[in-house]
C-alpha cells in the first residue's frame, strides 16, 4: 500500500504574543515542531504498512525550514520525504494549501491512502484534509479514533458528538487522525540520527504542474485582515458582604430578582 502522510510544521509553543504597538505576531524564538496530531497520522500509516506492506511517504508544504517536521517523520520510520517549497506557495490559505498538496499526491501517483492530522494546533482549522479529498475526488474519514484493516478493506470509527459511527472506507481515501488513534511514543536518539541521514526531495510549482492562479496568495480567497488579543468581558463587580451567611442572603435576593433562581 502506498501511503502519504501530510505534515505541518507549527510553532513550538502557542504562547504567542502581540506586539503592543504594531499588533503583529511576535514570532521570534518560535522554533518549529511537527503538528502533534500529525505524529498520530504517521504512526497510523506505519501500523498499516506493518500489516499490509508498502511505502510511507511524508509530505510537507512550507519554507525550507519545514525540513524539520519531515526529518521527524523519517525518524519515526517513514520511507521517504518530499518538501514542497517555492515562493509561489507563500501566503496560502486552506484552499490553496489543499490544492498544492493534492497536486503533489497526484504527482507521487498510485497513492492508496493520504493521512492528515485532525487539525493543526496553530491556525486550527482542520480543513486541509477534506479539501485535498475533494480535489482528488476521494472519500474522507475525518476524526478517526480507530482504524483497522480487514479482509473487507479499511474500517474506521469516528465520533459525531454522542454518536460513534463505524465506517467502511473504499480506497483511495483521506483519513484525518485524532489522538485516540494510537500512541506514537518517543523517538530514540538513533532514530533521530537516522532521520537526519536521509535525503529530502524538494518540488516547486513547476514540478507540480500547478495552475499559478490557484497557488499562494493568488489562490487564497480568505484574508486575515486584523490580529487582536482575546477580549475578556469586564463587568463592574458587585462585592458581597464579607460574612458568608450575609453574602449568601444578599446573593440569593439578587439572583431571584434576575429570575436566575
Amino acid at each position: 500500500m502506498k501511503i502519504v502522510v501530510c505534515l505541518k510544521q507549527v510553532p513550538e509553543t502557542n504562547q504567542v504574543k502581540l506586539d503592543p504597538v504594531t499588533h503583529n505576531l511576535i514570532r521570534q524564538g518560535l522554533a518549529g515542531r511537527i503538528n502533534p496530531f500529525d505524529r498520530h497520522a504517521v504512526q497510523a500509516a506505519l501500523d498499516l504498512k506493518a500489516q499490509v506492506g508498502g511505502e510511507v511517504i511524508v509530505l510537507s508544504m512550507g519554507p525550507n525550514d519545514n525540513e524539520y517536521c519531515l526529518r521527524e517523520g523519517l525518524a519515526m520510520g517513514a520511507d521517504r520525504a518530499i518538501l514542497l517549497s517555492a515562493r509561489a506557495f507563500a501566503g496560502s490559505d486552506t484552499l490553496a494549501t489543499g490544492y498544492t498538496l493534492s497536486q503533489a499526491i497526484r504527482k507521487i501517483g498510485a497513492v492508496d491512502l493520504a493521512f492528515f492530522g485532525r487539525q493543526a494546533v496553530d491556525a486550527d482549522t482542520g480543513q486541509v484534509g477534506p479539501i485535498v479529498a475533494e480535489f482528488l475526488g476521494w472519500p474522507q474519514l475525518t476524526l478517526a479514533s480507530q482504524l483497522t484493516w480487514t479482509d473487507q478493506g479499511l474500517q474506521g470509527v469516528r465520533r459525531l458528538g454522542a454518536l460513534a459511527q463505524t465506517l467502511a472506507v473504499p480506497l483511495p481515501a483521506v483519513v484525518t487522525a485524532t489522538r485516540e488513534l494510537n500512541d506514537p511514543g518517543y523517538l530514540q536518539p538513533r532514530q533521530i540520527k537516522a532521520g537526519f541521514q536521509q535525503p529530502i526531495l524538494t518540488w516547486n510549482e513547476v514540478d507540480l504542474e500547478a495552475d499559478p492562479a490557484r497557488l499562494g496568495v493568488a489562490g487564497s480567497p480568505t484574508v486575515v485582515r486584523k490580529i487582536l488579543a482575546p477580549q475578556t468581558k469586564t463587568v463592574p463587580t458587585q462585592y458581597l458582604n464579607p460574612d458568608p451567611q450575609a453574602a449568601v442572603a444578599e446573593l440569593l435576593t439578587a439572583l431571584q430578582a434576575k429570575n436566575l433562581l
Binding site: 490559505d93 486552506t94 484552499l95 489543499g98 491556525a123 486550527d124 482549522t125 482542520g126 480543513q127 486541509v128 484534509g129 477534506p130 479539501i131 479529498a133 475533494e134 480535489f135 474522507q140 475525518t142 476524526l143 469516528r158 465520533r159 459525531l160 458528538g161 487564497s220 480567497p221 480568505t222
Partner: peptide
C-alpha cells in the same frame, strides 16, 4: 461540530471559496 468541520471544507473546495474555521 465534527460533521460541520468535515462537510464545510468539502463544500468549500467544490465551490472554490473561502472558509473560516
Amino acid at each position: 461540530t465534527a460533521l460541520g468541520r468535515s462537510l464545510a471544507p468539502r463544500l468549500q473546495a467544490k465551490l472554490q471559496t473561502g472558509l473560516t474555521a
